[in-house]
Amino acid sequence: MTTSFILNGKKVEVTAESDAILLWTLRERLHLTGTKYGCGISQCGACTIHLDGNPVKACIMPLSAVEGKEVTTIEGLSHNNSHPLQKSWISEQVPQCGYCHSGQIMQAAALLKKNPKPNRDEIIKHMNPVLCRCGTYTRIMKAIEKTIQNS
């Protein structure tokens, strides 16, 4: 089965079995490994990508469901870490093991696109689906708030 979609601004065609999952297609068929596997059941958010601008979990998304749509992964978010959130993530020294932060940043980027000035409660509600075992939540909050202040 061939699926065509826009990936990080470029048209791609992928031929795979009909049960192919978007996460494994991005990672293993297209070698875009920035999007992570964490739970496989949409509970941890490590695999968060943008589908037509909305944050979705790639681990439960069939490849066939993105036919004709726009997919953005962490690799397509910016060039040279130039997205304001990436800059804040660096200046606030947010990541530790780093594994969840593609998902964290993609989740946060989707929020700021829709709502450039969210308050703290809105940020918490929006970011709650993405788990961080290293416990970087307070720095994630600082980085998002700093991005909002700087914008």
Partner: peptide, 20 residues
């Protein structure tokens, strides 16, 4: 600053699960 952080904000840090 931590050396590993820039590559941990753009998906380029390599974990074993990423090896091809």
């Amino acid at each position: 600053q931590r050396y590993d952080i820039p590559e941990k904000v753009n998906g380029s840090a390599i974990y074993s699960i990423d090896i091809q």
